[in-house]
Design a protein around this nucleic acid. Structure first.
Lengths: 216, 216
DNA sequence: GTCTATAACAGGATAGAC
DNA sequence: GTCTATCCTGTTATAGAC
């Protein structure tokens, strides 16, 4: 009933090459990031994958369902990269100011992955009209990193590791510039413009902030 | 607005309060900010204005030309609100750290205008795929305010008004958080969410920065 | 799982009457 | 300046053969 060459069970498929569903997923990321959700048709996706439009519907219920899986993937990757300290209350005890530099670098690193970079573009482009995109920007890219920074600062103060500062303001002064610097970085990259000044600013910011926390 | 077909007869123009062209302009801002450029059809714009689609083409050459006039309007408003110090080298002499607070407030104030707020949303939504939008974000919203801040800091240092700091880093620490705080503010507003924490953070940032510049 | 075929309709833009 | 009528292409999605 099954011939190994022409038919494969979905479970064994991961072994050899990318499944059609994965191809649809990847092609959609490419196209959505280039022309926006509304600027891309199911036909284009199908053409780039190499199948007919109607076949798409065997894998995703609708164009919007593809978008949804892209958002889910992005959130999953962000959660996976959260530092252990963000989840493990006990680890907070041994924390040093260097944790800020480390987390910033791993975030920047995550977006060196072309897939994540493209999804960030999609999210930026949809942030004011798609509730899912808005939630990602607000909760995953702004508030959670801010809250984490604030908590770390509070703990370092109560541990006597750093001098007394206002955790609300200090956390903001660390975290908020990073989003803008990062957006600038991705805009420049999408332009093939030089990012060296921007990257210097990022490193200067990290240095300056970590130093400002060191006890006198 | 733009140099689109501006051949209106002077007699008829005095009659109606808002010309058809202005109506098209305003309706387009509403619709584009809600559903994005690609999500809006010429037909919808025409319907909301109260004319037929084909009549649009008497005022704008194409849908894209409407978008262009929106971008031009936005840039014009931003240039108009630049502080005199940003254009007049002589005024730089009498400058005090309060100039940072003033400029931030007038920028925030400019975006209390619903029209400007909506256009900001449009620009955010197009920033990675429309070169005009990208230019506005990079040049008008990030780099120009940064350069202005840097220049002001340099001048205040050479005047002895403030202690010696690195103008590059200091200007970044002032300007970059403002963009993120501001984006957060507009995302929250579009959500009908509470913005009081965000606004408190903005004021704290301005206070903290202006104080950090005061000479000891 | 993919194909062909097609339903059912929306898209931007134009021509020409008034 | 606005209208009606129309062009032609593109759109999401479904039905049923293989």
């Amino acid at each position: 009933m099954t011939s190994e060459t022409s038919k494969r069970s979905p479970k064994k498929e991961a072994k050899s090459r990318t499944s059609t569903k994965e191809k649809i997923f990847n092609v959609s990321i490419d196209l959505f990031s280039q022309r926006g959700f509304n600027g891309v048709s199911i036909r284009e996706i199908a053409r780039d994958v190499g199948i007919r439009e109607s076949s798409i519907y065997n894998h995703y219920r609708s164009k919007d369902a593809i978008m949804n899986s892209i958002f889910q993937y992005f959130k999953g990757e962000l959660i996976k990269m959260r530092p252990p300290e963000a989840r493990n209350r006990e680890d907070m005890g041994q924390i040093t100011p260097e944790v800020f530099r480390r987390r910033a670098h791993s975030t920047l690193n995550l977006f060196n992955d072309p897939k994540m970079e493209k999804i960030f573009r999609i999210i930026s482009n949809e942030q004011f009209r798609d509730e899912r995109a808005k939630e990602i920007v607000l909760d995953y890219l702004i508030r959670e990193p801010y809250s984490f920074s604030k908590k770390v600062i509070e703990i370092m103060i109560s541990n006597g590791k750093i001098d007394k500062v206002d955790p609300k303001v200090k956390a903001m002064e660390f975290q908020y510039p990073i989003y803008s610097l990062f957006l600038e970085n991705l805009l420049l990259r999408s332009n093939n413009s030089d990012t060296s000044l921007n990257e210097k600013l990022i490193e200067d910011h990290l240095d300056h902030f970590v130093n400002s926390l060191k006890k006198e």
